[in-house]
Design a protein around this nucleic acid. Structure first.
Lengths: 212, 212
DNA sequence: GCAAAAATTGACGTTGCGTCACTGTCATAT
DNA sequence: ATATGACAGTGACGCAACGTCAATTTTTGC
């Protein structure tokens, strides 16, 4: 073994204490992701997560106070990854069409890439289909509303009820995302086109299908 | 005590056994409704429900195998109450506009009347917002899709993707319903008008607001 | 009325929960 | 280098809820 390894200049010079703290948190989150995917969220116990970890039960509670909180951390992490992309997409939009289609396309792309996670949540106890919104996800909804209000102020959007419009976009995004994931292959463009045309011109503007 | 009470002719002549079975089921469901409303769904235990009942713990398990199942029964009961109304509303629709507005108005009316129940579900552990769809609720979604397909076949609707359209209607309905309930007073007409106009003509067709 | 069938009861073993006294490790001062 | 105090990890423990089942009570059919 090396006697004394000088820390490389580029490496983060964090103290050992702080380092393992970050590490343990990640160990727990990663174990939880695997266990949730295996058993489904509903059937998973805190003990299952701990067992999938080299840590003791007491240690778990130094980091999270329940499986809900672990779950929330995983979801929030996803939310924090996608939110900047959505904001950017909407900021550079020069029209309603770009605003709407950019939002849906980015969201559906993300969901398709994050499918694993998206599904584990739904697989709950029994046959119940579940959707859970964490604070960071809800904050993403608020960002959408702010962006809508800004766009309305700039005259890009007509002066509509931004709160309801945000709710409608969110509802359509999640519900269509779920249907998209059930189709093989996942056609992101098709889903984005459908949602965009709905918001652009209503039912009559939706793409027509070959077969009735 | 009365020696022998002949059953009144009008009363249902069900055997005692069958009678208490129905009764006990209702006792449990009613207790559960109260407890869910009090503690929120997440915090409630099976024992809490049993305690709110004159029955023994073993009896509970003769009727339901978990609190999830009780919850599901309550939700399914709601779903079975509203589904016929929705079907009827859509069956008598003579245009897209009637189909869409009838669906949303009926749904929002029901949710406003059923607000108690609608809220107890959401109040879960922690700050998580939750939506759970039971089999009967999902069956309601399928009915909507069938009705859409029928309407498309009849030429009332253009030949669009009925699965995605159903998903969009469901998403908007639930998401706007939630927002509507947060407003005081609950303006069912406003919510129905918003959703209907969105589906009739897209964002540009939405009612304009007085103040930006 | 009596015996068989069915439903209710609650005590019991089991499992997961969250805590806390103890132990080991790291950061800092001497 | 070493001492010291602060902090993180450990796992056994008491507790609460779970689901079961043998015993008991109630209902039914004869």
């Amino acid at each position: 073994m090396d006697t004394e390894l000088a820390p490389r200049p580029g490496a983060k010079p964090a103290g050992k204490r702080e380092q393992t703290k970050v590490q343990n948190r990640q160990i727990i989150l990663e174990a939880a992701r695997i266990v949730f995917a295996e058993l489904g969220y509903g059937a998973t116990t805190v003990r299952d997560i701990i067992r999938a970890t080299p840590l003791a039960s007491g240690t778990f509670y130094n980091y999270f106070k329940s499986k809900e909180e672990v779950f929330q951390a995983i979801q929030d992490e996803s939310a924090l990854r996608i939110r900047p992309r959505l904001r950017e997409e909407r900021a550079k939009a020069k029209s309603i069409e770009e605003f709407i289609s950019g939002t849906f396309r980015t969201f559906f792309e993300f969901v398709a890439a994050d499918e694993q996670n998206f599904h584990a949540i739904r697989r709950n106890t029994d046959t119940l289909r579940v959707r859970m919104d964490t604070p960071e996800i809800i904050a993403g909804f608020e960002e959408l509303r702010e962006d809508l209000e800004t766009a309305i102020a700039k005259g890009v959007f007509p002066p509509v009820d931004a709160d309801y419009l945000m709710a409608a976009i969110v509802g359509v995004a999640f519900e269509i995302a779920e249907r998209m994931l059930r189709r093989d292959p996942h056609d992101i463009e098709e889903a984005a086109r459908f949602a965009t045309e709905l918001f652009m011109g209503g039912v009559r503007a939706l793409p027509h299908r070959k077969s009735a």
